[in-house]
Design a binder for these strands. Structure first.
Length: 761
DNA sequence: GAGCACTGC
């Protein structure tokens, strides 16, 4: 572990300057603090305030409440608005408010605290404020951070809390997410994504800006949360002044307690309505069919209330929606059923269509007729990311698509798998948000009890960890084996990650971070992409590789509606480059920028060309961020002139600087099957490719496992480039016997002969 | 000649 002296010392310095007395003395000598008036300033805010009565880490619930009740806002000195008092009323009715005293007493006594609160307890908005009144950040100059797994949550909760505290968002209360930092010099309480805090700590290993870190939604066990927990566990030993609160929904609270040195636990009940659970007596063979039937059954027999059905993916959802719609039409004709509006909901749906799920349920078809309802058919997105009020019936077939990682073949893929008990409970809970509800589980009670696992495996056990290992190295974690993760990944996954990073020259043979690795970790990218980007000036095409990298980091820019596939494919042909998909992406991006610069209506232009304006603009956003990072690291931005015959060749060569491990060779002439280098997987080029020629060697961006094994986003390359650009990986001495080795050996021999001839002449 | 669960930097 890296408890080096330099770090210790700096944390001590922070400690002493955070002493309120010292801060005050400093202020006297600081001519820049012109606003500081010693006469009436007790609190550093420049006015007297009820906060002056408070002592850091000694605030009682009563004192804090008194501050909140006062006419003047203790944080700004401005009078409280009427709205403030209205909200205060509702805040005081939240379940968590009952335990403010208990919370503070516990918080005073302990460094780490586990807080459990179910939905509706108010923990996400209130706990950080309770901490605020106890940490008194205006005295210490340190912030309180509260992390969220998702951006929208960080933004919306920050806005809510700003309203509750009667301050402007971005001032005393702010948020920080990728592409948007809405905080300022006055900010005391900062909501942020867990990934954002992780990124910050790469440059501040002690998290010295913060007095308190609250990890919210820890039960979701995102990769970032898991790493933050392990880091905080270490930092807590070095920084005794740092307080940590881990907040979770009930389920595995004890696991968190045990992990954090037996930290004390405080639990607050939620505010939800009871949900009655029904199981099928026999297992269902076709869960989509069973789900459709159940929805119709509810519509025919149950009282008013909306329905939420969980399915696994876009295709399944669209299919189910169609079937439900057809059947409901029949029901209306035949048995005078009420109207039902069916909405699909999944992540790749455009936001405007996602919004439609909040439309009101339809009115009865005639006055006094059977009530209408809406039915939402959703992926897992409705389990965590989106809450829909008014749901009374949940239909849960018990499956979801989950990412799995196979370290042996180094392939991440999506697989329809049974959900966990925790997920099933979460889904059922969606029925009880506004009134008592019902949940229909399309599996047997026995299956629920015996076959479902307790918790979904945390992300860290299901991912390629190359990126994570690089981050950890940059975070100063020397000893990965003893890095105390809550659920340590399989040794093989770790080994694979280390091996990959070593080949990319991000880690040396001793596993130490190299200069390249250190630079690569600065980019919010997978290591291969980062290395490609950093190397690109050597190939005189960093501008172009920057664009390609950005395009590869966002969802596909190609739009292909079911009713216009042919036209979409034709349009794509306009951008096609014969050498492959990477260059085609670049062409489309350049055309998009051209349209933008000529003042065209970009949305209209994209629509005509079957391109996604949303994803192109987000690629542009990513590009700007990556460009800034390149500039700060003096990575040159250059292009080969477009007229130069090597314009595209240089780009193809540059791709190999990062992706030399993702190469496939054609099995034999007139075969469509390729074999991947070193992994020896048989693959086909994904049908979405623009490539029509039977190239012998290709570089690919990703390996996808669906009905067949495919490589997707593919570009033609020359094998001799591999030997030149990645000589270590293509050291033929160490290569396994096979066609690929023989082919490469022939090429090496040819090159040698050519060089010998040149030398001889 | 196929498909992209969901996040995040």
């Amino acid at each position: 572990m890296m408890a080096d002296k330099g770090i210790k010392r700096s944390s001590m310095d922070n400690e002493s300057s955070s002493d309120p007395k010292r801060a005050k003395t400093d202020a006297k000598y600081n001519k820049y603090l012109a606003h500081y008036d010693d006469n009436d300033a007790q609190n550093g805010n420049g006015f007297s305030s009820p906060l002056d009565q408070l002592q850091r880490h000694k605030t009682t619930a009563e004192q804090a409440a008194k501050c909140e009740d006062s006419d003047l806002n203790p944080w700004t000195g401005q009078p409280h608005s009427q709205q403030y008092f209205n909200i205060l009323q509702t805040r005081r009715n939240l379940p968590v408010c009952q335990q403010r005293k208990e919370f503070l007493e516990m918080y005073h006594k302990t460094q780490i605290l586990v807080f459990v609160g179910e939905t509706g307890s108010g923990k996400t908005t209130q706990i950080p404020q309770y901490v605020l009144y106890d940490e008194l950040p205006h005295q210490t100059g340190k912030l309180i951070a509260c992390t969220q797994p998702r951006r929208v949550a960080a933004m919306s909760v920050a806005q809510r809390v700003a309203n509750e505290l009667d301050v402007e968002l971005g001032q005393e209360v702010g948020y920080s997410i990728r592409f948007e930092n809405k905080t300022g010099p006055k900010t005391m309480l900062k909501y942020m994504t867990d990934g954002q805090l992780l990124r910050e700590s790469m440059h501040d290993h002690e998290m010295s800006r913060y007095s308190t870190i609250i990890l919210d939604e820890a039960h979701e066990r995102t990769l970032a949360t898991d790493i933050l927990m392990a880091l905080l566990k270490q930092i807590a030993e070095r920084r005794k002044d740092l307080k940590i609160i881990v907040m979770s929904a009930t389920l595995d609270a004890q696991k968190f307690q045990t992990y954090f040195f037996g930290a004390p636990l405080l639990a607050v009940p939620g505010r939800t309505h009871p949900v009655e659970i029904f199981y099928t007596p026999e297992p269902e063979r076709d869960y989509v069919e069973a789900a459709v039937r159940t929805v119709l059954q509810i519509h025919a027999t149950e009282p008013e209330g909306d329905v939420l059905l969980f399915l696994t993916g876009e295709e399944e959802i669209e299919d189910a929606c169609r079937r439900i719609n057809l059947e409901v039409d029949d029901m209306i004709q035949e048995s005078d059923a009420g109207p039902m509006r069916v909405y699909p909901l999944y992540g790749t749906l455009p936001p405007a269509q996602q919004q439609r799920i909040f439309d009101k349920a339809p009115e009865p078809l005639r006055k006094g007729g059977r009530p209408g309802r809406k039915c939402i058919v959703a992926t897992n997105i409705a389990e965590t990311s989106l809450t829909i009020d008014g749901i009374v019936y949940v239909v849960d077939p018990g499956f979801s698509k989950q990412k799995i990682y196979n370290p042996r073949s180094r392939v991440e893929s999506l697989l329809v798998s049974p959900i966990s008990k925790a997920s099933a409970q979460q889904r059922a809970g969606r029925a009880g948000r506004t009134r008592p509800g019902k949940c229909f589980r399309l599996y047997t009670e026995k299956a629920f009890k015996k076959e479902l696992i307790e918790q979904t495996y945390p992300e860290i056990l299901r991912s390629n960890l190359a990126n994570t290992v690089l981050e950890l190295k940059k975070l100063g974690v020397e000893d990965l084996v003893h890095f105390d993760l809550m659920d340590p990944p399989a040794p093989e996954t770790m080994m694979r990650a280390l091996e990959e990073l070593n080949y990319l020259a991000c880690l040396d043979d001793d596993g130490e971070l190299t200069e390249l690795g250190s630079r690569a970790s600065e980019f919010p990218l997978d290591p291969a992409l980062a290395v490609m980007l950093i190397s690109s000036p050597e190939f005189y095409c960093s501008n172009e590789i920057l664009s390609i990298t950005s395009l590869l980091s966002v969802p596909s820019i190609w739009v292909r509606p079911n009713n216009a596939r042919k036209r979409a494919d034709e349009m794509k042909q306009q951008f096609a480059h014969p050498d492959g998909d990477h260059l085609t992406l670049l062409n489309a991006y350049h055309a998009f920028k051209g349209a933008e610069q000529s003042g065209a209506d970009v949305k209209q232009w994209c629509h005509e060309h079957f391109l996604s304006p949303r994803h192109l603009m987000s690629a542009d956003n990513v590009r700007a961020q990556l460009k800034r990072i390149m500039e700060t690291h003096d990575i040159e931005l250059i292009s080969t002139p477009f007229q130069d015959k090597n314009y595209y060749t240089n780009i193809r060569r540059a791709l190999l600087a990062g992706f030399f491990m993702q190469i496939a060779m054609r099995e034999s002439s007139n075969s469509k099957v390729y074999k991947t280098v070193k992994d020896d997987q048989l693959v086909m080029i994904h049908p979405s490719t623009v490539i029509t020629s039977p190239y012998d060697w290709v570089v690919y961006n990703e390996f996808v496992l669906t009905t067949k094994q495919y490589v997707r986003t593919v570009t033609n390359i020359r094998p001799e480039w591999l030997l030149e650009i990645a000589p270590v990986y293509y050291d033929l001495e160490a290569f396994d016997k096979g066609e690929i080795k023989s082919a490469l050996t022939r090429i090496t021999d040819k090159i040698r002969r050519r060089q010998a001839m040149k030398g001889g002449a």
